[in-house]
Design a protein around this nucleic acid. Structure first.
Lengths: 192, 192
DNA sequence: ACCTGAACACCGTTCAAGT
DNA sequence: ACCTGAACACCGTTCAAGT
């Protein structure tokens, strides 16, 4: 059952689905417009009537995935107050996304609104959690946590993790414990 | 004063220098073999008689830079025992490299020996420092520190740092303080 | 031996032509 | 309106020909 001629919504979906199926960790390089067109069952030029550039398609896929992450994590985000646990959950979900999209996440900066709004949503949620935990230096903490999560995802996605053979599970646990402990110690000094 | 015909060492150096001058944060994309050839004053094909691929040239540049980092830091590495201070120094140097080479550091995995030996040297030095500080879980600590350094470099090199407007200096300080504090707390619990 | 650049392969993007 | 693929631009890599 083919997508009908002129059904822009369904055809856009064909293209998005095709794109998603092609992303397998090699980042932008794995997303080739000829492949996308073939998989989606459309002409090469057609892809460009839905997405102005390859990066725009990539960004749409990424925004979709970030929103999915928030949806998946929503239950725990509202029920759990254990910061370590939240860090582990979040970092693990994020690693999966990172493994899918690869290291080209920087190009996303160039592409506007839906992406930024997804990122801001994630950021906002995290900020609330940190504030509720009573940790000061919210912005610095956010930057540190974000950097650590990205760094861990990058480490375990790259060949680097073959030089240091720890498993993902023990490493995130350790990272969560260490950073949260450091943040709380900071807190206690500040607090009194 | 041109490099003499047949002087392989000097010509290789011309090519390396040309490559270095072209790297400006965009990673592999900024390193275009036609540009390298032009800047080095050689034909395009000639570059390939010195480096089998573009990645090999990139790897040679990176290995050179890692060694430079170790040389620069050697004095402090042997004199300072303050872990926070070392973290800040190292992370800042590494950020500069990251800003130059961009996010394609993973391709380096494919390219062998000189690179790996540089990486291992950096890793070895760091391991010694951690052990001397009496911190347990050496391997996990190494992974966490490496990930954090990479993550911070990535954060401040990407557009992400525009969402969270902390300066580099305050953020590395904060990260160093937090992580080291967390590691030491861990230590004290383990120790008794 | 060492060097060279025309030629090939590949892939993002455009646009005149098709329905 | 919407769709298409031949054609263009760009860049890594090769190799037959030059010295």
């Amino acid at each position: 059952m083919r997508t009908k001629w002129g059904d822009r919504a369904a055809r856009r979906d064909d293209i998005v689905r095709a794109g998603r199926s092609l992303l397998r960790g090699d980042g932008l390089a794995a997303l080739q417009m000829r492949d996308v067109a073939r998989r989606a069952g459309v002409g090469l030029g057609t892809v460009y009537t839905y997405f102005p550039t390859k990066e725009a398609l990539y960004a749409a896929l990424y925004a979709e995935r970030l929103d999915e992450l928030l949806t998946d994590l929503a239950p725990q985000l509202s029920s759990t107050t254990d910061l370590e646990e939240l860090f582990v959950l979040f970092a693990t979900k994020y690693r999966d996304i990172y493994a899918e999209f690869g290291k080209d996440l920087d190009v996303l900066a160039a592409v506007g609104h839906q992406l930024t709004s997804s990122s801001l949503r994630v950021l906002g949620q995290t900020r609330t959690i940190i504030e509720n935990a009573g940790i000061p230096d919210t912005e610095l903490t956010l930057t540190l946590l974000w950097s650590t999560v990205t760094g861990l995802a990058d480490h375990f996605t790259s060949a680097r993790h073959q030089l240091l053979r720890n498993t993902w599970d023990e490493t995130v646990r350790f990272a969560a414990r260490t950073v949260v402990r450091g943040l709380v110690a900071e807190h206690q000094l500040h607090g009194g």
